[in-house]
């Protein structure tokens, strides 16, 4: 089974083509403002490097992360899936990062992605890399002390070394399409079914803190951005 994966939840745009355990191609371009320009080009290049295989599923990192990037990734993934008539799977970008990190930790830990405005998107994981809390969005100082004392992963965690017991060695750069692909493949092979779209959809635009609890125990998501925050918009007073 060949999976084409992409992630645009961070300043990086990454694309990977995975055939079983074998990584056939991997492309990364780091520029927070060029997801839309480079994604299709990277996909084209990765498929060429991989030998133009028949793709059987698309996996896309659905964040949380900067909304514009997420929407580029999700819209593209959905369009590839529609054109090729194959399933499109959403993966929480923090989950994929955690699965890669879990191998080196051996205990409970947390992962974070920059949410700007001095906040971060974060989730807590057990030793097996299973999400136990989150994704949430908070300022680092608002997070409970016992969680702050866990090992932290993600480049933003390194910016809060004082607050978050992160060490530079504990940080991995950005969510990566290789991890998205491996994560999706693992749960597809385990027989997990993609989370029901309509139930999920209602959570996408109007998050009131229910996203996290609704997603616990679910790994394969419908391919829509995990916004976590509500849209920033004020109703006029008059």
């Amino acid at each position: 089974m060949v999976i084409l994966a992409m992630d645009t939840s961070s300043p990086a745009t990454s694309v990977a083509v995975l055939h079983g355990d074998v990584l056939l191609a991997h492309e990364v371009h780091v520029d927070a403002r060029s997801h839309a320009e480079v994604l299709a080009v990277l996909v084209q290049r990765a498929l060429k490097v991989a030998g133009e295989p028949d793709v059987s599923a698309i996996a896309v990192g659905v964040g949380p992360g900067a909304y514009t990037g997420l929407r580029v990734g999700v819209s593209s993934a959905q369009a590839y899936g529609l054109a090729w008539n194959i399933p499109v799977i959403g993966v929480c970008s923090l989950d994929a990062m955690a699965r890669a990190a879990a191998e080196s930790v051996g205990g409970s830990f947390a992962c974070a992605i920059d949410a700007r405005r001095k906040e971060m998107y974060w989730a807590q994981y057990d030793a097996d890399g299973q999400r136990r809390a989150g994704p949430h969005v908070n300022r680092p100082g608002e997070i409970a002390a016992e969680i702050r004392q866990l090992p932290w992963f993600g480049d933003i965690a390194a910016s809060y070394l004082e607050l978050l017991h992160a060490s530079a060695a504990d940080t991995v750069a950005y969510p990566d399409a290789r991890d998205i692909a491996r994560f999706a493949l693992h749960y597809l092979q385990a027989g997990e079914i993609i989370a029901d779209a309509p139930a999920e959809l209602s959570l996408h635009g109007h998050d009131d803190g229910t996203t996290a609890s609704a997603l616990l125990g679910q790994h394969l998501l419908s391919p829509y951005p995990l916004y976590v925050r509500r849209p920033d918009a004020a109703e006029p007073t008059k």
Binding site: A36, L39, A79, W84
Partner: peptide, 16 residues
Amino acid sequence: GALLIGTATAKALASA
């Protein structure tokens, strides 16, 4: 932000 959803979709469709 709105344009990007159309252009991302269009690029993926045309490429696929």
